[in-house]
Each structure stands twice: as C-alpha cells, then as structure tokens.
Amino acid sequence: MKKNIRNKGFTLIELLVVIAIIAILIALLLPAVQQAREAARRTQCKNNMKQLGLALHNYHDVYKCFPLGHQYKGTFDGNPNNARGGPAFSWGWALLPYFDQAPLFNQFNPNQQLAETAPTQAGGSVSNVQLAQSVLPSVRCPSDPMPERFSDGAIPDSATTSYQAANSSYNGYGGTNFSRRNGPFTRTTFGVALSLRDLEDGSTNQIMIAETKWDMDGSRRNRGRFFGAQDNNGLTGAQGATNALCVCGQWAMNWTNAEGNPQPHRTAGSAHVGGAQFVLGDGSVRFISENIQHTSTAWINRANAFDAPNEGAGYGLYQRLFSIGDGLAIGEF
C-alpha cells in the first residue's frame, strides 16, 4: 500500500497558472461576446429599416407617391380652412399594410382623429387611441433601451419608435419660408405627397427615414412615435407634434442638449457607437458616421438656403442628403 502522493496531484503553482490562463482567456473573450451581441442588434435594426424602405417603395408602386409626413390640415377643430386640425396620422401608419401589418391598419378608422377615444365603429370595442398604443417590435431598434409606451400630447401611453422620417435640412416644421422646409416628408399644410421623380438629387443621395435615439439627455426625450402624434389641445385634431414623426438635418447626429443642442428631439442619432443608420430613397440602408461633413451656415442668409453662389460651401454633405433638389454634388459618404 505504498504510494507516492507527490507524483499523483498538481502543485499549487501549477493550479494557479492554469486558473490564471483560463481567467485571461475568458477576459479576452467577454468583450468580443458583447461586441457580437451589439453587432447582431445593429443588423436587426438595419433589417427593420430595410423593411420600411421596401414598404415605402411598395406604397409608391400602388399610389405613385410617398406617404404624407403628418396629416395636419383638416376639419376636427371645426374650421376646414385652418392650417391644422387634421387627423394627425403619420407616414408610418400609412406604410402599415406594406410590412405585413394590414390587420392592424384595417382596425384604425382614418375618418376619426388619432386621439379619438370613442370606438372606431358603432358597437366596436377598440378606439384609435388604443390602437396607437400597439407596440410593434419591428419599428424599434433593439440596441435602444427605451420604454415601449410613453404618454405624449393627446395620446396617453403612445407606442414609441426609433425611426422618424426626414423633414428638412433646417430646423422648423412651420412657417412660410419654403426653402427652409426642403425634405421629402412634410405636413399636409405645406405641400402634396412627393414621388420618386421629386427626388431630384437622385434617390441614392436622399435620406428618407432616420434612426433616432430615445434618451438624448436625462430629461429631454426623443419623441419618436409611429402611428401619429398631436399635442394636447382638447381633441381638436392635429396641432404641433410633427417632431414626434419627423427629424431635421440642422443638428449633428447624437448631439445632446447638455452639449448645446436646443432641439435634441429633432435630431437623428442611435445607440450604435459613432453614427446612425438611414434609409435612402432607393430603399437601401446605410450607416453614416457622426463625423460626416456638416455645415448649415447657409441659412444665415435666408434667401440663399443652399449657398448656391458659393457652390454650396456653406451647405454640408449631411444637409445635402436631407434636402431634395438642392442641385449640389454629393461625394463619398
């Protein structure tokens, strides 16, 4: 029964070395796993946006135009000539049947305003407001930890989204200066729906839908809503809230309020590092760096939105991608 214990086991040093090597290998692997997860989420987000891009084109095939940005003009405030008072539905609501959401689309009653709390049909059990609380995972970026619903204006517990349409290269949704409102999606008040031929710079050089980030700051939410939006004005139809549906190109991506951005909820951005994803007019989805050439100095001279006399020197590449028909060349991006 004589045995040599020393030769059978490992020494303490040997064990420690093995454990140390295993620990190092795990430490090397963990960040890679996290990055792979973020890459997967980014790809899923890109796929969500691709579906919206395809939906835009399928919509265009049927109606020969793109949907309206915000159904703003109308009669719910009692005055058919008023610039506001419309049903407040959005471009996203109009696209529903074109990405497999026709059953949801058919439940809405477009003859009522979105904030209507009465049933959509006599004897029905569901109202437009309740439908506006429907959470669609396919319009939410999986990287962005935002609430599924958040009260907004006239619509309590309104379903949120990460994707907003391109309104203009400059800030502002109202006003009468049309060179300032130059993007593909606008309010009914300010124009008709555009079609592919209106994308004069070429559909490849036109941002249609931008990704947005929910928490641009602790207290200043990005308002992103999908089905529509209206401010709380006693159920008299659309008023304001276009910034819940459309974003502008005036402010650089991911630029927060604390860093001096007065309108972070009108700004594109994402939870992906270094930029955001955009649906272009040809239906493709591109990740654009937040360091893209960006200069909106042309607006200092209000008669000269695109800085044409200086060949667009005061009008940046990011702005050129937002505006239709600026007539300026677009390089690599």
């Binding site: 650089a252 630029w255 309020n257 604390a258 860093e259 001096g260 951005n261 007065p262 937040e290 360091n291 893209i292 050439q293 960006h294 200069t295 909106s296 100095t297 020197a313 005061g314 940046g316």
Partner: peptide, 16 residues
C-alpha cells in the same frame, strides 16, 4: 445658454 461652434466644414461642437 447654448454655445455652438459651427466650422466651415465638419461637425459642430457645443456646450451649455
């Protein structure tokens, strides 16, 4: 107050 520096070519910088 927001202080925003807009360069002639590139991303603006800002602060409050």
């Amino acid at each position: 107050a927001a202080v925003v520096f807009v360069p002639e070519n590139g991303r603006p910088a800002g602060a409050r």
